[in-house]
């Protein structure tokens, strides 16, 4: 257990002209829950496919449990669990048939590792004779996770497990991940939902094949370099339009029924802003300074990346 669970060095993967992964380097210690946060097309799936030995990198190297993803792919495959982004189970097989199948091809049985999946599987067990294709989104996910866990992998790769899943199922899913992590499994998970970032030990903000930042959620927020204010108004759209032209402003983004405004530290003058808005015929319902969210940080980094 000397080597980290995952170790990536200068990893680059090119499809034709596009750099799907652009010079990534990072280590994941054993037992960590690491989240890859970024939109579709950022490179999350490609990265997971390299780490699960499905793709060969163009440059650089990646190790899983100290084993090289290119040379030692066979050993790696014995010790990892993978849940691909698309629901990839046999829709015409029942819940139980799917799980039995995956248990058997990994040379184990449901009973042998039942303890590990009990927590998750017991929720869908009442439907074990139902075809996987007829399950709801949340249940499909639990089944897919059970299948990925059934052989007791040391490292779990979950590619966008919560996409298209409602907020409640998402929360339950993360609670399950936390319990798994407590059972000493290293988990790498990707998601397009920024609000899930705070649930990870560390997050990697990923965009256009590059990791913009990899650190703890608290550090991401602490290193946000601006003063951030939340402005409330009835007409968010009008407020946004007006604020875009306000001098000295860094970003103005809608957040629900408020607008987040960022300024260079100590450059914000509330009175000046209120006057400006009044001129435009807008009376904001309140302005207060707030702490940045991961989403604010992501947009800031993304805006800088692009130009």
């Amino acid at each position: 257990m000397d080597s980290p669970a995952v170790s990536v060095k200068n990893l680059t993967l090119r499809y034709g002209d596009t750099l799907a992964l652009n010079d990534l380097s990072f280590d994941v210690p054993h037992g960590e829950l690491l989240g890859f946060i970024g939109p579709d097309g950022a490179g999350k799936t490609t990265l997971f496919r390299v780490l699960t030995t499905l793709l060969v990198p163009t440059h650089g190297s990646a190790q899983v449990d100290g084993l090289d993803v290119v040379k030692d792919y066979r050993q790696i495959r014995n010790n990892i669990g993978y849940m691909p982004g698309r629901f990839s189970l046999y829709q015409d097989l029942s819940v139980e048939e799917n799980l039995t199948f995956f248990a058997t091809i990994f040379g184990t049985t449901i009973r042998e590792n039942y303890d590990l999946i009990k927590d998750i599987y017991s929720q869908i067990e009442p439907f074990k004779n139902r075809k996987a294709g007829q399950l709801s989104g949340g249940m499909k996910q639990k089944l897919a996770l059970s299948c990925a866990l059934i052989h007791k992998p040391g490292i779990l790769f979950l590619d966008e497990p919560t996409t298209g899943v409602d907020a409640v199922s998402r929360r339950e899913f993360w609670e399950m991940l936390k319990r798994l992590q407590a059972g000493d499994i290293t988990i790498l998970v990707s998601t397009p939902y920024m609000d899930e970032a705070v649930l990870c030990d560390r997050v990697a903000l990923i965009q256009n094949g590059r990791i913009m930042k990899i650190t703890t959620p608290a550090n991401v927020i602490a290193s946000y370099p601006y003063s951030l204010f939340s402005v409330k108004a009835d007409d968010i759209y009008g407020l946004l339009k007006a604020l875009r032209d306000y001098p000295g402003i860094h970003r103005a983004d809608a957040f629900g029924q408020t607008v987040h405004l960022s300024f260079n530290k100590d450059e914000f003058r509330e009175a000046a802003l209120l006057d400006y808005l009044k001129e435009k015929g807008i009376e904001p319902a309140g302005i207060r300074e707030i702490k940045a969210t991961i989403e604010d940080c992501f947009m800031d980094l993304m805006g800088k990346e692009e130009g």
């Binding site: 939109p39 950022a42 996409t163 397009p192 983004d253 989403e295 992501f298 993304m302």
Partner: peptide, 12 residues
Amino acid sequence: EPTGGVDPITRR
């Protein structure tokens, strides 16, 4: 679900 998987800037 028009904005599934889109980055936060594009979403806005």
